[in-house]
Design a protein around this nucleic acid. Sequence first.
DNA 1: GCCAACGTTGGC
DNA 2: GCCAACGTTGGC
Length: 150
Amino acid sequence: MNYWLMKSEPITYGIGHLEKEKQCIWDGVRNYQARNFLRMMQVGDLAFFYHSNIQPPGIVGLMKIIESNLDDPSQFDPNSRYYDPSSNPQNPRWQTVRVELVEIFSTMITLEKLKQNFTQDKLMVIKKGNRLSVTPVEQEIAQVILSWRS
DNA sequence: GCCAACGTTGGC
DNA sequence: GCCAACGTTGGC
């Protein structure tokens, strides 16, 4: 079982949205490196939900992967902002996963706290200039983060 | 709102 | 296949 971190802007889709929906397809990732991580995810993996582009940014909850290796439906939807006209339906370019909400943390684990406790090479999300919206999290680091829940 | 970092596109 | 131009991300 592996741990991941997935970013979303709360204005677009925050953990409150997931709380209402209970589960969702994590669509709209249009970066090959992030997609490759999505392809590696397996049912039962856990993922931290990270709010980006907000003050303060940080981890707000935990999700579970409940379906893996799905073709992202938004790539074929001309009305979607994630529509990719050059993706071939016979060989879709973008895959993703379905997630369900496990829990919302009572207090956010801020980016600042992550930076104070981990080094850049141990946790991708705190790397300067890192823009990947899907990244792996090492077991030991995941355990430490989970132990901070109050 | 700014802008550094970085990914993608497209002309050559 | 190079690389300049451009677009996007996301912390601040």
